[in-house]
Design a protein around this nucleic acid. Structure first.
Length: 417
RNA sequence: GGAGGGGUGGCAGAGUGGUUGAAUGCGCUUGUCUUGAAAACAAGUAUGUCUGUAAAGGCAUCGCAGGUUCGAAUCCUGUCCCCUCCGCCA
């Protein structure tokens, strides 16, 4: 969440920045709640001080309190209690509002209310070739993809991969994990896929995006829509020791999404499904380092696309299109030759201190020993079934076979399908 | 799921309901001593929040939430987490 100090001290800036996202936060209400909150704190503290002095006096002199004292103190206690009640109400109201306010975009994010304002900042090929053999046909013909079975098992928007299709999928994931751990020096994490509500709030997925998440109401656990949620939760409530930043995590997990909002869209194939695998890279960094870290992560993601021989482009998302928790986002898309469209395979975001404030993840700086909120960054590296789609459609030969990218051969054990 | 035990400061570990924000030890920081280091000695060493230019002070926090009391780390209730044993189980 954004800090209340920022809202108070830079009211207009905050208001304008959020307007660019199409948001109108109740700034006035926040300010009045915050003002009242401080008033009550001062009041309650003074009353408690009174109470403490009397109690201490009784304790020090080792006597029993007289009737008048007991009466006064009881009244004082009641007064304190009623203010405390108001205070807790204000705190929860304030919290409720603050949790629904999205992050403030960085100044170099293109202004616009939707994806039409996104800027394409790089495209690897000037021309995109199309061949009219979508992955659902290729996959079926070569017995790599079995939508009929997944429909029997789970319904629509799921997939079954089989044989070499499954192996290719696994090879892609393993290769990505190896690149991130061996070359980019991330620590591999295998986290839980079910998380507590607090963890979902920490990442920014709750309370606002409940309708897109699966959860078990018996245990109050939520299925992660991305490993970002789990990785971000690793240091909830912790103070990270001096010298431990940057922390770099990579995880391959399933991602569970209801995709209610997209009903009817992208129904064919496996581009948009309820459960998919994704390799996610995540960093906790010192605030001064997040801008550079963001560009590094974009490079790491782009490098994967290059090495797979895919056609890709990089978008800088507009103020209206970046995610709730993000201050700046690059999307990386690969070209799907079979369907003639760009597939988003990565979203690389700098969330600044937005998530660490929600998580209460802090960092003790070695210079001045003050505690600060570190910045977090996340990026897919990469989203799997979509990359699987691209590799399949991209590798399709005249004779109907598939050539596997060279990098993957030592993971698959074969060069073609 | 059943039965027990436990959650206290960076760590370990005390704590008859009344100067306990908290003994003691370790660690860490600084100083004295030393050519330097070690040892020894001395001092300091949690977080949040409010008032204040500052100095300083108030308040809160002993897993979390309530309750009892003039007064709660200490008593009561609920809850979460951890450990041990039993049962079940990939």
């Amino acid at each position: 969440m954004i800090s209340i100090e920022k809202i108070l001290s830079q009211k207009n800036y905050v208001e304008n920045s959020l307007k660019n996202r199409g948001e109108k936060p109740p700034i006035k209400e926040i300010i009045s709640l915050e003002t009242r909150r401080k008033e009550i704190i001062t009041l309650v503290d003074n009353l408690r001080n009174k109470k403490n002095i009397v109690s201490k006096n009784i304790g020090d002199s080792k006597r029993t309190p007289n009737g008048q004292e007991i009466k006064d103190m009881r009244a004082l206690g009641e007064e304190i209690k009623s203010f405390e009640f108001e205070l807790s109400k204000i705190n929860s109201d304030l919290q409720k509002i603050l949790l629904t306010i999205p992050n403030i975009p960085l100044d170099d994010v293109p202004v616009g209310l939707d994806d039409t304002a996104n800027e394409v900042i790089y495209t690897s090929e000037t021309e995109q070739i199309t061949h009219n053999n979508p992955h659902w046909d290729i996959g079926k013909n070569l017995n790599l993809l079995d939508i009929e079975s997944s429909a029997r098992i789970s319904g629509s928007r799921f997939y079954v991969l089989r044989g070499k299709g499954a192996k290719l999928h696994r090879a892609l994931g393993d290769w990505m994990l190896d690149v991130h751990t061996n070359e980019n020096h991330y620590e591999e994490i295998d986290p839980p896929f079910l998380v507590r509500e607090e963890t979902m709030i920490g990442s920014g997925n709750l309370p606002k995006f409940k309708e897109n998440l699966y959860m078990d109401s018996e245990t109050d656990l939520w299925l992660i829509p991305t490993a970002e949620v789990a990785l971000n939760g690793m240091h909830q409530g912790q103070i990270i020791k001096p010298g431990e930043l940057p922390i770099k995590y990579v995880a391959k997990t399933p991602s569970f999404r209801k995709e209610h909002t997209a009903a009817g869209r992208d129904v064919r194939g496996i581009k948009r499904v309820h459960q998919f695998e994704k390799v996610e890279i995540f960093r906790f960094v010192e605030p001064k380092d997040s801008i550079i870290a963001h560009d590094e992560m974009l490079e790491e993601v782009v490098d994967l696309c290059k090495r797979l021989g895919l056609i890709y482009r990089v978008l800088k998302l507009s103020t209206g299109d970046i995610g709730f928790q993000s201050a700046k986002t690059y999307d990386v898309e690969v070209w799907s030759k079979g369907t003639g469209e760009w597939l988003e395979v990565s979203s690389v975001s700098n969330c600044l201190d937005f998530q660490t404030r929600r998580n209460n993840t802090r960092y003790k700086s070695s210079q001045d020993s003050s505690t600060v909120f570190p910045h977090t960054l996340n990026g897919s590296g990469l989203a799997l079934p979509r990359i699987w789609i691209a590799v399949l459609e991209n590798g399709l030969q005249e004779d109907g076979s598939i050539i596997i990218p060279e990098e993957l051969v030592k993971y698959t054990g074969w060069e073609k399908i």
